[in-house]
Design a protein around this nucleic acid. Sequence first.
DNA 1: CTTTCTGCAAACTCTTTGCACTCGT
DNA 2: ACGAGTGCAAAGAGTTTGCAGAAAG
Lengths: 146, 146
Amino acid sequence: MDSAPPAAIMQGRRTRQVEATYDVVRAARDHPTAEQVHARVRRRIPQISLGTVYRNLQKLASAGRIRVVELGPGSTRFDGMLETHEHFVCEACGGITDLPASSRTPPNPAGLRRAGFAVTRHALTFYGRCPECQGMESPGARRACR
Amino acid sequence: MDSAPPAAIMQGRRTRQVEATYDVVRAARDHPTAEQVHARVRRRIPQISLGTVYRNLQKLASAGRIRVVELGPGSTRFDGMLETHEHFVCEACGGITDLPASSRTPPNPAGLRRAGFAVTRHALTFYGRCPECQGMESPGARRACR
DNA sequence: CTTTCTGCAAACTCTTTGCACTCGT
DNA sequence: ACGAGTGCAAAGAGTTTGCAGAAAG
């Protein structure tokens, strides 16, 4: 939410906090929320504040070092995987799975371009039930898959 | 966030508030936020509260009468268009445009199914600049497209 | 009449921000 | 040393919820 020109160019200072935050997100496979990142960074820098983590996550994201994932309600999640990929969200357990970029058929924005839209990127997300949540179909089941 | 079984079956009472909220969302073409819906419903029922609008939007959504659209940060948005379709989000003005379901090539979840995932739906969103925002490329421009 | 819904306001969650101090560079 | 970064705590948005009274079925 700022006026970052083309962005992804500035770097900022290399503080322990920024680097630790970066490392945590890059190492995570579970698309952690800001609070989860905070908890993990704390293992290395116990006194780091949540506000700093938020600030750094923002910085890292606008610098293109990590990605922000917006999937459904709840908190924003962060992703250290920079390559193009898609997501599967389990509606039972909330777990998010990374999927390699669509085997084929990249969405076709040709019509959009023709209509005057400049398309820079797209997001493709699938929703349903993960393998682990298939068995327990009980109408009230809300078990944890991860 | 409740235990709605397969959902979309319950109806609840037909109160003026619920129906007015429904009408507003169905008539809207701009994916309004809860507050915008509230403002519009108020033109018909001046004393309706924001809390009630939130409750009713939730009810309508879980009954399948309207759709919830999650696009980037900021508030949740609501969509009265029930048919399968995609979205284009302008990163300059924030405007959201409905797109008819991908001309062709519906994303291929075959691999997912084979891996044991039960896919029930998917969301495809494009990001970039809408035609109206193309001209004013000035590095600080943040005009309104709608 | 019974049950659900509404209005109001307080509570909550997630995220941002002001300020004084610290630490890269 | 200078200025960006940090910790803390308070402030902000957006959304949810408890309760007493209103209204639908």
